[in-house]
Amino acid sequence: MLSLAEDLKLAIRAGLKGVHALALQKLSAKNLGLSEQKAKSIREETTHKVIVEKLSVVATRKLVAEMIASESKLAVTKNTKKKAVSQASNRLQQLSLELLKQANPAELTELQEVLRHKLIEIEKVLKQN
């Protein structure tokens, strides 16, 4: 119990049972793939839900498992999107001058237009951030 997060120690002092706290401890930054601050926020919200709804230990463990699974799916989706942009960038870099010289003018014109449109979209996204 000494290794519990401070927010869980406080919850125990307020009436949360130790076995519930041990289950909630799994909502860590490492397990969720988030920053410590976000993980703490999720853990506090989940702890509140456990207390208010008077969840059993089994229900608490199930809720914790669902939270971890949900966050890991989000992380995978984010990483997949990041990889897609990186892969596109890498593929463009592989277009050597020799490959471009071998392409016909219609293909080069089409590529040029696509790149112009994508550059405009990239600029809009960067301005929003």
Rank of each mutant, 00 (worst) to 15 (best):
T46G: 03
L27Y: 00
A103C: 12
R61H: 05
A39K: 06
K17C: 05
N104W: 07
A106R: 07
S35N: 04
A106H: 06
K9N: 14
L8I: 07
L92F: 14
L74T: 09
L27P: 07
R43G: 08
L126W: 06
K83G: 00
K26L: 10
A106S: 13
V19I: 09
I51F: 11
Q93H: 08
E66P: 02
R116G: 01
Q87G: 08
R61I: 07
H48R: 07
V85N: 06
I122H: 09
L24R: 03
A23H: 02
H20W: 05
V85E: 13
T47V: 05
Q87H: 10
K78P: 02
T80K: 09
L22S: 08
A21H: 00
S35F: 05
E45L: 15
E44R: 09
T60W: 07
K81Y: 04
V50K: 02
H20C: 06
K62A: 12
L22K: 11
S72I: 14
H117V: 13
T60L: 04
N129K: 07
K9V: 14
E36K: 06
E107Y: 15
A59Y: 01
L32I: 03
S56M: 05
L4V: 01
L92Q: 03
A29M: 00
L126G: 02
T60N: 04
A14Y: 06
L63T: 04
L115M: 10
I42D: 00
R91V: 04
A14Q: 12
L74W: 05
T47R: 04
L16E: 04
T60R: 03
L126K: 09
T109A: 15
Q94N: 11
A84P: 00
N129W: 08
L32S: 03
A69G: 06
N31I: 03
L108I: 09
K78F: 08
L97M: 13
E6H: 11
L115S: 14
L55N: 01
L4N: 03
E71R: 13
K54N: 13
Q25T: 01
L126A: 05
Q25L: 04
E113S: 14
T46A: 06
L34Y: 04
I68Y: 01
A39C: 04
T77N: 13
